[in-house]
Design a protein around this nucleic acid. Structure first.
Length: 644
RNA sequence: GCUGCUGUAGCUCAGAGGUAGAGCACUCCCUUGGUAAGGGAGAGGUCGAGAGUUCAAUUCUCUCCAGCAGCACCA
């Protein structure tokens, strides 16, 4: 007999080679019915796994979070069986469980179309209804090779070869269909359940490599129950509603044109928001000791050869040849320009740290398929800065940047910030000493600040290690915004130096940093994060003064002038429309403050205020309203409390 | 860039081998109305671009451009 210990500490004696399924049955029939998979000594295993010696066993029911990934994995197999049943001869590649669902990659002559999905889904539901058991078999490599060769499954043969020597080769069978698979699986196809939906077809490279053939991928979402699936689908629909491309149009912020793919046409309101961001950042940077500069947009090829961009980055650059055959390039980055500004005159250690900031517009010829609204564009404005300092100052400067960037994100309501630290790659320049010092400086900055980070060893740029700041947006997408990088390369290429206290000319340490990263991208993230309901201090139009009757027009003009004079961004709506019509329209445009004025207000010199998201109104004197609105429209880090 | 899909009025979309339609938005008129759509009239389109087939193409075919989804890319 073998002893099996359960999570509650109880032990049970079973005959050798009993399975967790036997165990469940021995405890109670209802438990046996519920149990779909087992954790044996900490590892998820099939219920049919024979127990050969003493073990700790936990029986897992279908609604356990640990079963969800297996539900999704089961569905991937079922999807593949359905596809091969409908299109015999289709080759299968890989089909894993992923966040929210699963996918399977196929190779077939005619790719799937969206119309195929309901057909496949129907077939899958038939397979599920059969409740066919999943059974595992361990095969020899030769047996597996022979099988998949005969089956005409070249991708499976490739996967087979990728299994390390010494590891067992297992296949999972469901009726007549089988797949090379590590497992585990649930009991039978019925355990996969009905709470799934095939969502899209897409191309995907074999093994994720663009040099390989493109396969046809089918994606599905899946959850343990219908309710969670519906919630997920509702959430996706919500996410679509707050898509910044749609909101940007509805709020009249910007648009795109075919003649300038990937470049933004900013409308007055969008540009005002953009400039508000720049104004805010300018204030924070000035307070932090930065000086602002500006460098040319178009510079000669010679500069880009010095910086190395011509050799390494040309495919991503917009190039231009003038009438006299001279090669220029639009700057894809600001750093070379800043090197030239630094290079003017002799710099002393007394000048350091020197922090050159620029709201520079850079142009990069991004692949067409990468473009995505404001979030991935071909010309964008960076809140870029380069910090030149001595090696001794490095750690402190990194710490200051880190403090600044996190403080700024908090002001925008982004508390969920992940930081990635990427360290020395195989191909690199610079001494080990420099790398030690730089990686140390970045790590110390993070540890001093007490912020968690993820280490990406070997992922740094060839010229130095870097930090990347990743914000999670409302749809749960992660967007890299800020970056802090140490650079050994450019000072060397440009022969940049400072005069040290000793009188020696030494190369400065150079830091690249951008906090918003791209103003365009940051604007898009902000719009999605707030679902268009921008906080008062950012809203391009903070208040609309709308009249109820024409008799209030003069008072409306006076109120608007007064609020504008107090620094608020105000528009008036004197149109010949009912107040309900005006309220609806301005609510749809997400204007934070609506001020309605009728005969009563005009007579008493008062205003009636309605805040976005509320249907309550409040009437108060113009003076009180102004004070309150001015107070509420300050950026967070410069205000103590908002009072409206 | 790759795979698939899409491109008709400012927006959302319908339509058909014989040169186009709805709702909203827009303009004008009536209405001066108290917190999410008052009524009437009108204007608006080289049907993404180019080529081909056809008596005839916005519709069919091809090429290109752009967008969308995914993949790859992302200093």
């Amino acid at each position: 007999m073998i002893q099996v210990r359960l999570p509650d500490g109880a032990t049970r004696a079973l005959s050798p080679s009993s399975t967790p399924a036997d165990l469940a049955k021995a405890i109670s029939p209802s438990l046996a019915k519920r149990t779909v998979v087992a954790v044996i000594d900490g590892q998820l295993k099939d219920l049919s796994t024979p127990l050969l010696e003493d073990a700790e066993v936990e029986l897992v029911s279908r609604d356990d979070p640990r079963a969800l990934e297996l539900i999704r994995h089961d569905l991937a197999h079922i999807l593949a069986e359905a596809v091969q049943a409908l299109w015999p001869g289709t080759q299968t590649a890989i089909g894993p469980a992923i966040e929210h669902g699963f996918y399977y990659d196929f190779d077939l002559d005619v790719p799937f179309t969206p119309e195929d999905l309901p057909v496949i889904e129907k077939k899958m539901r038939e397979i599920i209804a059969k409740r066919t058991p999943f059974t595992s078999e361990t095969w020899s490599r030769d047996q597996a090779r022979a099988h998949f060769e005969a089956a005409g499954e070249p991708y499976k043969l490739a996967l087979l070869d990728a299994i390390p020597e010494g590891e067992p080769v297992t296949v999972y069978r469901q009726g007549d269909w089988l797949d090379l698979c590590r497992g585990p699986h649930l009991r039978h196809t019925g355990d996969a359940g009905a709470a799934f939906k095939l969502t899209r077809v897409a191309g995907a490279y074999w093994r994720g490599d663009a040099k390989n053939k493109m396969l046809s991928r089918i994606y599905g979402v899946a959850f343990a129950d219908k309710k969670t699936l519906d919630e997920h689908l509702t959430m996706m629909a919500e996410a679509e509603k707050r898509d910044h491309r749609r909101l940007g149009r509805e709020m009249d912020l910007f648009h795109f044109e075919e003649v300038a793919p990937g470049s933004v046409f900013w409308h007055p309101k969008g540009w005002r928001l953009f400039q508000t961001l720049i104004g805010y950042m300018r204030g924070r940077q000035e307070a932090a000791g930065y000086v602002e500069v500006n460098s040319p947009d178009i510079m000669d090829r010679a500069l880009w050869e010095t910086s190395g961009h011509w050799q390494n980055y040309r495919a991503n650059m917009f190039l231009t040849k003038t009438e006299d055959e001279r090669d220029f390039a639009l700057k894809p980055m600001n750093c070379p320009g800043h090197m030239l500004i630094y290079g003017q005159g002799t710099k002393s250690y007394r000048d350091l740290p020197l922090k050159l900031a620029e709201f520079g517009k850079v142009h990069r010829y991004e692949p067409s398929g990468a473009l995505h609204g404001l979030l991935r564009v071909r010309s964008f404005t960076q809140d870029d800065a380069h910090i030149y300092c001595t090696p001794e100052q490095l750690t402190e400067e990194c710490l200051k940047v880190n403090d600044l960037v996190l403080s700024i994100y908090r002001d925008f309501g982004f508390e969920d910030v992940r930081i990635k630290l990427s360290t020395r790659p195989e191909n690199r320049i610079g001494s080990e000493e420099s790398w030690d010092r730089s990686e140390d400086a970045l790590r110390t900055a993070l540890e001093t600040a007490g912020h968690a980070y993820t280490l990406f060893e070997g992922e740094g740029a060839f010229y130095g290690p870097k930090l990347e700041y990743v914000l999670r947006d409302a749809i749960g997408r992660d967007w890299q915004c800020g970056t802090l990088q140490v650079d050994f390369n450019l000072p060397e290429r440009f022969g940049t130096t400072y005069v040290a206290a000793s009188g020696d000319k030494l190369p400065p340490v150079m830091l690249h940093r951008a906090l918003f990263g791209s103003l365009e991208r940051f604007t898009g993230i902000l719009v999605e994060h707030h679902a268009g309901h921008l906080p008062l201090w950012l809203a391009p139009v903070q208040a609309v003064v709308a009249t109820i009757t024409q008799a209030a027009d003069p008072w409306a003009a006076e109120v608007a002038t007064s609020l504008s004079a107090a620094g608020l961004r105000v528009e008036t709506d004197l149109r010949n429309e009912k107040i309900g019509y005006k309220v609806r329209e301005h609510a749809l445009k997400k204007i934070p403050v609506q001020i309605a004025l009728g005969a009563r207000e005009a007579e008493n010199r008062t205003v009636t205020i309605r805040l976005h998201g509320s249907d309550k109104t409040e009437t108060l004197s113009l003076e009180d309203a102004t004070t309150s609105l001015v107070q509420a429209s300050r950026p967070p880090s410069t205000t103590i409390a908002s009072c409206i």
